[in-house]
């Protein structure tokens, strides 16, 4: 099994649209949506959920009102302002450090698991898919991304590919998505902010020694900036595996809940994407 991760430093570059287009091309594959903050892949792959698993993030303090002697020692020591004057835990503020539980003379505070979200194991028309949803206000984390990938790997063990839609940014979640991949495809858009963020995500892949290639999306948005990306890649000896111009069909496909290839396999953009995919296969084997 080979693992391909699709990433972009910046949000909104078309990462998910490309990932879903690959779903139409990849045979015998498993898909994972690791963009747990804004998981969108399911809108195109339309999974049927087979199994739901609770996800525990940081622990949270719980005060047992019957044992509590109202000394308010916990309020004094909490650095996060997470316990109010009525001795109730403000769950959004609690960072799970356990200090309140430690100082409580009445043993009235317990650190308990909190369900921060759910992981789903599903079936789609292209193959199995693993995805997740965080509860509102919960922080995306490397832990959740790692768990999504772990489940996906278990399923993908006798398959040909695991295709991962990664999270934006360069922080812990993006790194967890990259970890252990055979190839990372960086999707870049030719804007000032896009170039800035591409440079940083490539830095992360280099640190990890993970093979990577770049695909320029919406390449006709600004040809000068597209050239700058190409120069940048040339300088760093990174292959640009494709340049895909902006195509309204991307939006149209998503609106219809289809991949770009399902909408029209013969369109110019579909053909360009097929070429990118073929090149990725060569790079990975």
């Amino acid at each position: 099994m080979k693992e391909i991760v699709i990433l972009s430093g910046k949000g909104g570059t078309g990462k998910t649209s490309l990932t879903s287009a690959f779903a139409s091309l990849a045979r015998n594959s498993v898909f994972a949506d690791c963009d747990v903050d804004a998981p969108d892949l399911h809108l195109v792959l339309r999974p049927k959920i087979k199994k739901t698993i609770g996800f525990h993030g940081m622990k949270v303090a719980k005060i047992n009102k019957e044992k509590c002697i109202e000394c308010k020692r916990c309020i004094e020591v909490c650095k996060f302002g997470a316990i109010n004057e009525n001795l109730e835990i403000e769950k959004d503020e609690c960072e799970g450090c356990g200090v309140c539980s430690y100082v409580c003379p009445a043993n009235a505070i317990e650190m308990v698991d909190r369900i921060s979200g759910f992981i789903y194991i599903s079936e789609t028309r292209f193959g199995p898919m693993v995805h997740a949803k965080l509860n509102p206000g919960e922080e995306a984390s490397g832990k959740l991304v790692s768990q999504v990938k772990e489940k996906a790997r278990e399923i993908a063990i006798d398959k040909e590919f695991l295709i991962v839609d990664g999270p934006p940014g360069i922080a812990c979640p993006a790194i967890a998505a990259l970890s252990g991949a055979d190839l990372a495809l960086m999707v870049a858009e030719p804007t000032l902010t896009g170039i800035h963020d591409l440079d940083r995500i490539i830095g992360v892949a280099e640190h990890f020694g993970i093979k990577h290639a770049v695909c320029i999306n919406k390449s006709n948005l600004n040809l000068e900036n597209a050239d700058r990306i190409k120069d940048y890649c040339k300088e760093k000896d990174i292959e640009v595996v494709g340049e895909i111009p902006y195509d309204v069909n991307f939006v149209k496909a998503v609106v219809e809940g289809k991949t770009l290839l399902e909408l029209d396999r013969t369109s110019k953009t579909s053909k360009l994407i097929s070429k990118v995919w073929e090149r990725l296969l060569q790079l990975i084997t």
Partner: peptide, 30 residues
């Protein structure tokens, strides 16, 4: 961006919040 702690800390206490979206299923879901 996102809906985590940094988002909450920034928006908290505002008089009004403008949510920017795009008319696609992705935009709607988020």
């Amino acid at each position: 961006p996102g809906a985590g702690c940094p988002f909450i800390e920034s928006v908290k206490g505002s008089d009004f919040c403008l949510l920017v979206t795009e008319p696609t299923p992705f935009g709607l879901y988020d």
